[in-house]
Simulated scan of single mutants.
Amino acid sequence: MFFSVVIPTYNRKPILEKCLKALENQQLSDNKVQGYEVVVVDDGSTDDTLNWLANSQKEYPHVKVFEQNHQGPAAARNLGVEKATGDTIIFIDSDLVVTEKFLQSHADALIQGEQEQGNDCIFTYGWVINTCNFDDPSSEPYKITDYSRAYFATGNVAIARKWLEKAGNFDTRFQLYGWEDLELGVRLKKLGLQLIKCPEAVGYHWHPPFKLDQIPNLIDKEIQRGRMGVLFYEKHPTWDVRLMIQMTWIHRILWGVLSVGGRLNEKTMAPFLQWLIDIGKPQLALEVARVFLNWYNVQGVYEAYHELQQRTS
């Protein structure tokens, strides 16, 4: 098999450098992988990413660079698949740093999965370990908060190109934050594809340590995720999707109670969150902040759903 690693990026130059270096250091132990390329799609970055990539071609011989105006990750991944030459696509994000055995592990799991299933209706999903350690991302251990029940998520997934094309690739209407990969996953599941877990294919997902000045952006993302969630539900109006996007009375009650009707918010909880940060617990502070972040998400979901009902009535 020939791998095309498709990476959309937008203003992530510092961590993208670590991402690409890790992909150049792959150790392929047998002939399962005939070769690989790294297809980077710049989604309208303004941080000099394109110039840096143009001046670094010798350091990254596997990398091919394409660009588009800022249209979101769904359109960027579609462009990456269009430009890719491989028969097997691996999607990762540009803030993911992988191990040296990353490609080999996906190849091993794909071949073993085909043998066990008796067909090629499969894809592999590797581990994603969250870390805020920029200097040494791979030193982070796996944590219970890293566990994911997602069926198809583009943080670390390998799939035959033909299945993406048969499913119709990503829906480019998902231009805001969230759900474009899980929506494609619903269509892949309808084609009968089986998920093969591949914990040996490890990627370390870096994000900066949580600080209070990140909160407005995080709130905006949750509202965007709510709006895109309703688009997801509009395409697939099922109970499973309602649960995924938190559009149920259970979620309204849960986050309403936990946030005391929104009274526990970014303002009232700021002193406690700052205290956690000051004692060296930024990740715990972020998890606590999810109380009001999820409340904002649910508000965004129902506001967008109300707008949808008005348009269709």
Rank of each mutant, 00 (worst) to 15 (best):
Q117T: 10
K162G: 15
A289I: 06
K189N: 11
I122C: 07
T312N: 07
A22H: 02
Q309D: 08
A109T: 13
R173I: 02
P8N: 12
N297L: 12
F123H: 04
D43F: 11
R187S: 13
P282A: 05
Q104E: 15
L243V: 10
Q104D: 14
K166D: 04
T248G: 07
Y204G: 01
V40W: 04
L212R: 10
Y60C: 02
V230I: 15
K281G: 02
V230M: 11
F174L: 11
V6K: 04
D95K: 02
D87N: 14
K211G: 12
A84L: 02
W206Q: 01
K166G: 09
L184T: 01
L164V: 14
L308P: 00
K64M: 13
L53G: 09
Q27W: 08
K21M: 08
H106M: 09
D171R: 00
S94K: 00
V260M: 08
R187Q: 12
D135L: 08
S259N: 03
E17Y: 02
G261H: 06
A270R: 13
H306E: 10
L273T: 08
S94N: 09
Q194Y: 03
I215E: 06
Q224T: 15
V97Q: 01
V301C: 01
W255K: 02
E180T: 08
S29D: 14
Y177M: 06
R263Q: 12
I89K: 03
E180H: 11
N55L: 06
K18E: 04
I253V: 08
H306L: 10
G229R: 03
K21E: 05
G118L: 06
L188W: 05
Q310S: 06
E116T: 14
L193H: 05
K162P: 13
T9I: 09
W206R: 01
N265M: 04
W52G: 04
G126W: 01
I245Y: 01
Q246G: 01
L53T: 08
I223A: 06
N265W: 03
L164R: 07
C198E: 07
G72P: 09
H70W: 06
V186Y: 07
D93C: 08
Y302S: 04
Q214P: 01
L16N: 02
I215C: 08
F102P: 00
L28W: 09
D146S: 06
G229V: 05
R187I: 12
R263T: 09
L103P: 04
N265P: 08
Q115Y: 11
P209S: 14
I159S: 04
P61N: 11
G80R: 00
Q214H: 12
A160M: 08
V65G: 01
N156S: 14
E114V: 07
G178R: 04
L23S: 03
T49S: 13
V63E: 12
